[in-house]
Structures are given as structure tokens and as C-alpha cells.
Design a protein around this nucleic acid. Structure first.
Lengths: 209, 209
DNA sequence: AGCGTTCTGGAACGATCGGTCCAGATAAAC
DNA sequence: GTTTATCTGGACCGATCGTTCCAGAACGCT
């Protein structure tokens, strides 16, 4: 088992190997799935023997957990979360932030592919836990984004609007990602623009109600 | 290999076995994925020996193809495709038909789960072919639905509106399905209502432009 | 009764699976 | 220079994988 502390400049070769194993595993699992990727595949792809793989991670499931952990970290780090400026309308704020978030989606296809695969087909509790945490985190982000968007025009109802529309917006994201995976030629910018317009309109309608 | 013709009332035991194998395979593959489901699993689940499985289907991939073929057939048969009545507005028609389509989604989770899994992680050409066909069929359905919806208020522009919104609507469906799989407590009715309202609004805006 | 087709029961195949073991290479620590 | 912890190389394990084979049960046809 690897040590958590890395005191000096010594062989960070170990850490580099660890990363290369995770790179290879992430790449292959996001395309073939967890069960479709063997330890031998990862060894071949990373150029390291399976003894190294089992030294860094104690099991195949351990590799998966590490891949998802690192992937989630990087993914959420790339999702922008800037509050609206004073002259932002719900429309302008949603358009900008959803478009930016869409870019994050396009930039992390490996993580998201594997995420959806696990969401649909994994029953291992340690994986389910990560999947649920990632999804909850994503929903919280989206909820805050919508609440932000309407805080300028209806501060006291923005929370309720976000409650109402968070799932819809999330479904829009998920669907846009799937569309992109199924048909790379579709424009994710346009989908994000339409989603922003839809959320803005639905929110406005709640404000007016 | 099984014969296509089944002339008389003889042992339809064969056909029943075939169906039970497909039932078991569909059930397991939609939960564990293709690679996560073994022939032994299917044999155990269906109560039939693997020799029977290989007599009806020549390979594991053959089972998959048959599962998807039958699933797609049943799925599209359950999707309602009724034209609008003369007093339908785009809103009323979209609301009704998308809500009905949403029911079809809820009623065929096995097929759709496996469909998404294969969409994301299968590289076998025979599977890719089916996946693309199913998706194209679905998109065509949705396109026709949107065109129908706006044919009453803007007959000459309904086609262009459908071109513009078909991908967005499809993403809404995909996302709603994923949301339901991730969090069964979300209301698919509400998601479909919001999607209908969003499509109606975006379409209206194109009409007015 | 005999024949032929359809389907089942179960053993068996080589390949690959996830995982283990251990000898040795490497270099920081003393 | 010896020790110690980190990491690699590769053989090896039993289990399971997809697939094959074949004897025979079950039943329609003549």
C-alpha cells in the first residue's frame, strides 16, 4: 500500500506510475466500461505490470474508486461558479453560466461517461456512494446557479424557483451530454442556449404567478 | 439455429424458452451491463442450460442483438403517435403527447437502461448499428411530434421549428430518464410538463421571430 | 413402429479473469 | 556500506469466461 506522505523529492516515480495507471484505467473504463476493462488491459495501456497496479491499489474496485475520486475532483474544479453581477438579468446570467458549464462537460467526457455507466449498472456500495455524492454535488451547484439567476429579480422567491427547476436543468445537462456522446455533430452550445432560455422562461413564469 | 417458420401447434416450448432466455438476459444486462452478465447468469436466471441458449442464439452477441431488437420493437409500439385535433394548441398537444411518451419511458426501463449502456460503451458494429437505428427512429418520432404541434399555428414553419428543437426535446427525454434512474423519487410527470412548456415556448418564439 | 427434427442436460475446452507471491532493482537514510 | 522502504518484473493461482460437443428426451410425420 502506498504511503500518503511524500516527504521529499525522492522517487516521485511512484506517484507518476500511480497517475499513469489511473489515466489508463480512466481512458479504458470510460469506453469499455468497468467489466469490459481487465487488469491486463490497464497494464498494457499504462506500460506497468499488474504487480505495480496491485501495489498502488489493492483491488480492481480500488482502481475504480480512485479513478472516480480524481475525476470528480477535476470535473468540479473546472465548473465555473461565479455570482451574477448587478446588471445581470436571469437570462444573461443563465446563458453565460450554462454555456460555461457546458464547456466543462465537453472537457471531461471520460469522467462523465464512466459516471453514467456506473450510475446505470453498478451495484457495489462503494461506487454507489461516490455516484450519489457526485450527483448531489452537481445538483447543489445547479440549484445555487438558478437561485443566483433569479436573486436579482425575485430575491425572496429565488430559492423556491431553484427547487422547482433544478431537476429540469439537470436533466437538460444529462441529456445534452448523452446527445453529444451519441451524435458528436450536435451543437452543445445551442443545446445550452436553449436550456438557458427554457429555465429563464419557466422561472419568469413562476415569478409572475 | 432455430427455424423461422413454425408451421403448427407442436412444441412452442421452443419459442417460450427463447422468450424466457431473452427475458432473463434483458433483466440482467440492463442492471449489470453486457460484460457484467455471463452466460451462466442467464442460464441460472432462465432455468435453461447454456446449450439451449446457444441453440437459440449462436453467440452472446446474438443474445444482445435479439434483446435489443425485441426491446426496441416493444418500446416504439408503446410510444403513442396521435396527431393533434383541430382545437389543439401547441401547448396542449405537446403537454399531452410528451406526458404520454414519458409513460412509455417509465414502462420500459430495462430496454432504455441497456440502450444507454450500449450507447456509451459498445464498439461492436452490430450493436452500434442497432443503437443508431433506435436513436434515429426516436428522433424522427420527436421531430414529427413537434412539427405536428406547430402545424396548427404555423404550418409552413413547423418543419423548421422541429429541426431547431428536436435535439433539445430529445435531450430532455434522455435527461429525464437518467434522472429517474438516478433518483426514482423525482416526478417524471413534472419533468415532462416542464419540457412541454419549454418546447412550446421556444417554438412560439421562433414563430414570432 | 420408425424416422426426423427440435430442444435439453451436462461435461468439457482453451482462454482469460482478478488476484497473489516473491525475488530483485532503486535510491533515500543512517 | 549496510539497511530499509518503495516499486517493478513476471511467473503463477484457482475460478470463471464464452463456446463446443454430443447423447438423448420429446414429439410431429408417415
Amino acid at each position: 500500500m502506498p504511503t500518503a506522505a511524500r516527504p521529499n523529492k525522492r522517487l516521485l516515480q511512484g506517484e507518476r506510475s500511480r497517475d499513469e495507471i489511473l489515466d489508463a484505467a480512466s481512458r479504458m473504463m470510460s469506453v469499455r466500461g468497468f467489466d469490459g476493462t481487465s487488469i491486463a488491459d490497464i497494464a498494457r495501456e499504462s506500460g506497468l505490470p499488474n504487480s505495480s497496479i496491485y501495489w498502488h491499489f489493492n483491488s480492481k474496485m480500488g482502481i475504480l474508486a480512485a479513478v472516480m475520486e480524481r475525476g470528480a475532483e477535476r470535473f468540479f474544479a473546472s465548473v465555473p461558479t461565479t455570482p451574477p453581477t448587478t446588471d445581470d438579468t436571469p437570462e444573461s446570467y443563465l446563458l453565460r453560466t450554462l454555456r460555461d458549464s457546458g464547456v466543462a462537460f465537453v472537457e471531461h467526457p471520460e469522467f462523465l461517461r464512466l459516471f453514467v455507466l456506473l450510475l446505470l449498472s453498478s451495484d457495489a456500495p462503494e461506487v454507489k456512494e461516490i455516484v450519489e455524492r457526485v450527483r448531489a454535488h452537481g445538483r447543489t451547484n445547479l440549484h445555487a446557479l438558478i437561485q443566483h439567476a433569479f436573486s436579482t429579480v425575485a430575491p425572496e422567491r429565488a430559492g423556491a424557483i431553484a427547487d422547482e427547476l433544478a431537476d429540469f436543468a439537470m436533466a437538460g445537462f444529462d441529456g445534452a451530454f448523452l446527445a453529444l456522446q451519441a451524435t458528436p455533430s450536435v451543437s452543445h452550445e445551442r443545446l445550452m442556449e436553449q436550456l438557458a432560455e427554457a429555465v429563464a422562461t419557466l422561472g419568469r413564469r413562476i415569478v409572475e404567478a
